[in-house]
Design a protein around this nucleic acid. Structure first.
Lengths: 292, 292
DNA sequence: GTTCCGCATGAATCGATAG
DNA sequence: ACTATCGATTCATGCGGAA
């Protein structure tokens, strides 16, 4: 089978993910990336979960996610607590503590800085411009392909390195004492650097018909970082299917679940053509592309 | 007493803040801004608090802070959990839950994005480029001077404002007919917008000999936002005194506590001259400035 | 083909009003 | 008194049409 002919599979389930997850084998998924409905948000599509009931509602799901994830796999949870009665709700931090009791390791918390956040003005707070990306693992040894998400030197070099004066170099050297300052000037010759745990992305707002909760760059970044080709990516709250569409494009197998029939149909329709091209190597489209 | 002659006071205490805080009256402080020693960090100076003991250690202090804060005041806690055995510690989120039991309202969580953090990596994680700024209040009604921290408007404004009448009228009318004139006047002549809850600041690198935990811009931003002139700012873990020095410069009274004699002496020495100028309105410096 | 410009719209939140 | 709905507020982005 040729490289392009290798089949990329997409399994879609319509229904409550707490139930549908039971159909997925143990230790079979490489990356779970999902953005569950936030408490009392998206009421018209998901019914809305009261903040007080959120942890209780999510725990049976995270237990299933724990079961299906490979020991080397990663679970990335995109979430943000809402304001209730002038205060930030605590259901997200309570959830972290409860998931640890299930065996999850809370490895890291990335920040998604939303460059274009929702407008508004209130007497007691500013606009909320960030969301959490909680990284959970089953084991301290997990797959991480850091080289895949390196970023151009550009920004970092301009702001810091180009202005690096001699005194700065000396100071950095004396501070750490291990030649770190010298290392810094070595970066000048490189083209790419590793990113930090802060991601700067705009939200996708006035796009086509369906509006996704997050931009494609978000799952793309984590799929690059935590999976390789032909790995399996799962999104138990796929919504409009952004995670799956990106996974498919990046040649990862994917599994999607959603309780809303409209979303299920929409994703099914959108992913079908991609599958067909790969499944039918003798089709016109395939021939056009491969044998010009 | 003339305006510039008004005395700006600085009270410094050497000792354990849990004890020294008892000397401060109830409901007397407008803003508490502090960055306590992180768990198991700064072992040489503070002795290091084990992550498992952190909450237990901090709660008696936060109880005192609750007592001394005015009902209209704000407590901003700069903190970040460290990695222990490959996992993020949970003492910060546990602390939030416990402080709520003491009566604190967890109003907001700001993010300090550390712009100039060095690129770097470990096998399992990237460079940590953000810290939490947890906002706590005693009451839902607290003082907030939002206009003091406005930032320049983005590029989009230039094009938008050039021709704003028609579209803004239409959008306003589509909801409610009244009040659009007021709205337009809000936008005209406006050059600044309100910020979000994400702060982009570089870490302080090239200052004096002593390295502060945070740059001056950090306390400055919150002092502007939550206090006015002659209000009282408290830092119970003043360290090298960044908070107090900024408060003094901004003409706020301040109270600082630290258990380390070297820090205490250093801050005392640095703040003394500023006090003297203000206390002696007939001094040369005063005259030079006010009566040219 | 570029670049420029107008336009709609978001995982929001508060306070007032209505049931 | 308590909850539910609704209007007002506000800014960055990418698309599509225009120059």
């Amino acid at each position: 089978m040729s490289f392009l002919g290798m089949e990329i599979k997409t399994d879609l389930y319509l229904g409550d993910c707490k139930e549908k997850l039971k159909l997925i084998p143990d230790n079979s998924v490489d990356l779970i990336f999902t953005s569950p409905p936030y408490a009392d948000q998206r009421r018209n599509t998901y019914g809305g979960i009261h903040p007080d009931k959120y942890v209780e509602w999510f725990l049976p799901i995270s237990l299933q996610l724990y079961r299906v994830l490979k020991p080397t796999g990663t679970f990335v949870l995109n979430i943000k607590e809402k304001v209730v009665n002038g205060e930030r709700s605590t259901y997200v931090i309570e959830l972290i503590l409860e998931m640890k009791k299930q065996g999850w390791l809370w490895t890291e918390e990335f920040i998604w800085h939303k460059k274009n956040s929702y407008p508004g003005k209130w007497p007691n707070r500013f606009r909320d411009a960030w969301e959490r990306l909680l990284q959970f693992n089953k084991s301290r040894k997990f797959n991480m392909y850091q080289d895949q998400v390196m970023i151009p030197m550009g920004e970092w070099a301009r702001t810091r390195l180009r202005k690096l004066s001699e005194t700065d170099k000396i100071r950095d050297n004396s501070k750490v004492g291990s030649g770190f300052g010298k290392k810094i000037s070595n970066w000048l010759n490189r083209e790419k650097v590793y990113p930090t745990n802060v991601l700067h992305l705009a939200t996708e707002c006035s796009n086509k018909n369906h509006s996704a909760a997050f931009p494609e760059e978000l799952p793309e970044w984590f799929i690059k970082l935590f999976t390789k080709e032909y790995d399996i990516v799962l999104d138990p709250f796929m919504g409009s299917g952004t995670t799956l569409i990106v996974a498919n494009r990046m040649r990862r197998h994917s599994i999607g679940i959603d309780i809303v029939p409209e979303y299920f149909q929409m994703v099914k329709k959108q992913l079908k053509p991609v599958e067909l091209i790969l499944l039918e190597p003798e089709s016109e489209i395939y021939n056009e592309k491969i044998k010009p």
